[in-house]
Design a protein around this nucleic acid. Structure first.
Length: 271
DNA sequence: AGGGTGACCTGTCGGC
DNA sequence: TGCCGACAGGTCACCC
């Protein structure tokens, strides 16, 4: 469910209303990817000072320490003044003075981790290797080209890997490569400077556009108010195998790279 | 060191 | 209808 746009849409939907709130109760359900890292009781009384994002992680800053939240493959957050009884797959419930934040995550690939400070080794382990933020000014086309020159791997895999640029998941990797006219299997180091610059722009465009449209609803994405996004309506290639390309009418193809599905148009996307 | 694979967990869908 | 395998938006640990 969540790539960068979905995580950012989620962040925007609850960052303001939760800022300044004091945690009144905190409880975890079944184990997630990693343990919380402290007793839930320790979080009671702490105040939320801001909500940031790094890649696909949400960083909930507290007056002491911070919570790292990852939505994994199937996670979603809700924030509301009042939420009903816990449902199956609700695995974090944080009652605050300004509303309740709840994580719903059927597959439990997500995580909620408390760290005492951003200098903690856990932060280094989880965030230390992450590449540049694609929507920030620090994402520079020439730097991007130079970095691609060092990678022999297929460009699709490089985008997914996250050490070069963060936040591009399986949907938006296919979409960005379609927009750039680049075949997903092409070795990253074979991409020319001008094509790398076009890909750089495509990544920014596709992610920016998806954030503006409220994220993908491929299955069931909702923001923290339970509202759906509408990106999937406009997907050019993702999950469209056998359907006509929206540009050239050739059939969209599907293949597998690194055990993940890749979609592309063999006419519009070239090696 | 970089690159490839398996593992984590649950739900859904298509085929027989 | 029921069972079984394949697959789903992520990413870390481990192998070579």
């Amino acid at each position: 469910m969540p790539e960068l746009p979905e995580v950012e849409v989620t962040r925007r939907s609850f960052a303001e209303p939760i800022t300044g709130a004091v945690i009144r109760q905190f409880q975890m359900g079944k184990p997630l990817r990693w343990p919380l890292g402290c007793s839930p009781a320790k979080l009671v009384g702490k105040q939320i000072t801001s909500v940031r994002r790094r890649g696909k992680y949400l960083l909930i800053d507290l007056n002491q320490g911070l919570l790292l939240v990852h939505l994994g493959m199937s996670g979603s957050l809700r924030f509301a003044p009042q939420l009903g009884p816990l449902q199956t797959h609700d695995h974090m419930d944080m009652v605050t003075s300004q509303g309740t934040l709840r994580l719903h995550d059927p597959r439990r690939f997500g995580a909620v981790v408390y760290v005492p400070s951003e200098a903690s080794p856990t932060v280094q382990k989880l965030l230390g290797h992450l590449g540049v933020e694609p929507l920030d000014d620090g994402f520079d086309p020439l730097d991007f080209y130079r970095a691609l020159q060092t990678k022999k791997t297929a460009i699709k895999q490089v985008l997914l890997h996250g050490d070069l640029v963060v936040g591009v998941g399986n949907i938006y990797a296919s979409e960005a490569l379609f927009r750039a006219g680049i075949r997903p299997t092409l070795a990253a180091q074979k991409i020319s400077k001008s094509r790398a610059q076009r890909l750089h722009q495509s990544i920014r465009d596709v992610l920016h556009h998806a954030v503006e449209r409220g994220g993908s609803t491929l299955n069931d994405f909702t923001n923290a108010h339970g509202e759906q996004g509408q990106f999937q309506i406009e997907a050019m290639v993702y999950d469209r195998q056998g359907l006509p390309c929206r540009i050239c009418k050739n059939k969209i193809k599907k293949m597998v790279q690194g055990q993940r599905a890749t979609y592309y148009c063999s006419v519009c996307q070239k090696n």
